[in-house]
Design a protein around this nucleic acid. Sequence first.
DNA 1: AGAAATTTGTCCGTATGTATC
DNA 2: AGATACATACGGACAAATTTC
Lengths: 152, 152
Amino acid sequence: MPTPHYGQPRYRTIADELRKRIKTEAIRPGTLLPPEATLTAEFQASRGTIRQAIGVLREEGLVATEHGRGSFAVRRTNPVSNSHHATQQKIPADARLAGLLNVDIGTILVEHESVTLANDRVDSVVRVYRPASPAAIKPASNASTSDNSNPP
Amino acid sequence: MPTPHYGQPRYRTIADELRKRIKTEAIRPGTLLPPEATLTAEFQASRGTIRQAIGVLREEGLVATEHGRGSFAVRRTNPVSNSHHATQQKIPADARLAGLLNVDIGTILVEHESVTLANDRVDSVVRVYRPASPAAIKPASNASTSDNSNPP
DNA sequence: AGAAATTTGTCCGTATGTATC
DNA sequence: AGATACATACGGACAAATTTC
């Protein structure tokens, strides 16, 4: 069989499905996801693809994996309270950000958001914006030194 | 050949070596790493393993990879960054900020905005949000319910 | 305590799709 | 259009951690 992946790759589709099951608590917080072998059978995908899907959820902080044990749906889907908070998402640059970062409006940026704590209370929200791709930055004063690379 | 990997896995060893080249600027900031095929030959490892190694560096923020182009050593921010831009303004909290800061929507926040520089270029925009008046913070809410499983 | 079964981790080789040069 | 380079996907094999018997 070939390996077509127009549009959405397979591992992302699988990640989406598993994410839904976690968010709807079809997979309850703190419990194990089905083992990779089971998911392989259910989704008719190779183990590598299943592992890639789980990797996505791990990066999102939705699951935690342990060698020889399995992948757990992380507890505490609760809003805030005492746990740290750190998210990352991609957003298009508005005029203000575009101007500061020297990119075109609409350029995809990565927004890192975290909070600082003081006495177990959220003290401030910190957001950092950076172009998702360094290549998006518009040229400025280019001197000499013609490299074979011209990215950031 | 079997696949022995006692102790340090291969992909981590390769990541360590590449990291060293970046930190010592043997691979200069902003330039391309060798393509995966070249690294495959040099380290006598499969492409999957090379990709795993690069993935480690990507997570560390040392490299950025672009489809069809390659992986770049990221231009790093200077230790002593002199911010030339810093503003401060008051804004009402939207739902997202209000939830994180535990204040009512519409509560007046102070937004501090600054930028970090790298090689005289703007590298990122940083924004910090804090209630203009600490009195706006609502009394604590509770969490922590029963536990009947024992993962992490 | 020890052996077997289960489950995730690492690594290889190959093939094909997609983006960039 | 062709070459180069990264992305996705498959399949197999063995290693290592955990659990079960």
